[in-house]
């Protein structure tokens, strides 16, 4: 059965007064199904945190409605607070309490105990349990993250909100974190996770690309890539900067930008042969091949359309 875990309709969030109003969310709508890992992907300032704070009842929206687990974020805020887990972007546990004390504190607030829900957090908590008597402030970054996740889970929430859990985290730890989330999903918990790293989209069931308070696209990662709709090429040569300049000047090219080892070239039509002939004539020794767009290509394409 497909059940809606989170439903958001035309949410508008503004900050400031009169002359200095900033609109953080411009009428956002989407739904998240139960048991999904749903990714909110966008740069800093896109509105990810504002949306999470509206959904966790910590912030009131100026317009629009939203429900979490069937409850209204304004009217039923107390019900929602019992049912959601929230891991904010900034570490916000008690630095002077030990690992175990922090976890006990959160369990007690929600009228439960570590023992009662140990099976849910075991996978994560067991990794920091050897340090259970250490103060939270003395933990390493990775251990803090695991403790924060354990605390957000200890009352067995039905929906888990993770605000940029992998920001500033290296590539290895990021992969480990996503493996943990996949195992949590198997326990039936709906997970909303935000990230500025485009390459993490592939770990989600569905993603919303968000930029400047607006949703650019919502789909499965594969669906978003399919919508790219233009021919994409990858090119490299000894001199990458002059190559980029030359490629950009060709009439068949809609856009070109550095993309790791290669430059990605978005074509207006086909035109691969014309581009190759042109680069040969310009004297480049180059490698030109077809490329598969990824989420970052799609994000940039959508940003430039806006």
């Amino acid at each position: 059965m497909n059940m809606t875990a989170v439903s958001i309709s035309k949410i508008v969030k503004r900050y400031g007064k009169k002359k200095a109003v900033t609109t953080a969310l411009h009428g956002i709508s989407f739904e998240v199904q139960q048991g999904e890992i749903f990714g909110l992907i966008g740069p800093d300032g896109a509105g990810k945190t504002s949306l999470f704070r509206v959904l966790t009842t910590l912030l009131l929206a100026e317009e629009g409605t939203a429900t979490v687990d069937g409850f209204d974020v304004v009217k039923d805020y107390k019900e929602i607070r019992k049912r959601v887990g929230y891991m904010p972007g900034r570490f916000s546990l008690y630095q002077d309490l030990t690992v175990k004390e922090n976890l006990e504190f959160f369990a007690t607030i929600f009228n439960t105990s570590i023992e009662e829900n140990y099976d849910l957090i075991k996978d994560i908590y067991s990794q920091i349990e050897p340090f259970k008597d250490r103060r939270a402030g003395k933990l390493s970054g990775g251990m803090k993250q695991k403790l924060a996740l354990s605390c957000a889970l200890i009352h067995r929430p039905s929906v888990l909100f993770l605000d940029e859990p992998t920001t500033g985290v290296d590539a290895v730890s990021r992969k480990e974190f996503w493996d943990m989330l996949k195992r949590l999903k198997e326990q039936g918990i709906t997970i909303l996770v935000s990230t500025p790293y485009m390459d993490e989209a592939g770990m989600c069931d569905r993603v919303a690309l968000i930029q400047a308070g607006r949703i650019l696209s919502i789909d499965t990662p594969q669906g978003i890539v399919r919508q790219f709709g233009k021919k994409l090429l990858a090119v490299k040569a000894g001199q990458m900067l002059p190559l980029l300049q030359a490629v950009k000047e060709h009439v068949a090219v809609a856009d070109a930008y550095p993309f790791g080892e290669y430059h990605h070239v978005v074509m207006k039509g086909d035109g691969r042969q014309e581009l190759a002939d042109y680069l040969t004539k310009k004297g480049f020794e180059f490698e030109l091949k077809d490329a598969e767009p990824d989420i970052e290509d799609c994000f940039m394409g959508l940003m430039k359309e806006e």
Partner: peptide, 13 residues
């Protein structure tokens, strides 16, 4: 030191 963390892909370039 991580000058482009959290920056959108266009600005990053």
């Amino acid at each position: 030191d991580e000058p482009t963390g959290g920056v959108d892909p266009v600005t990053r370039r």
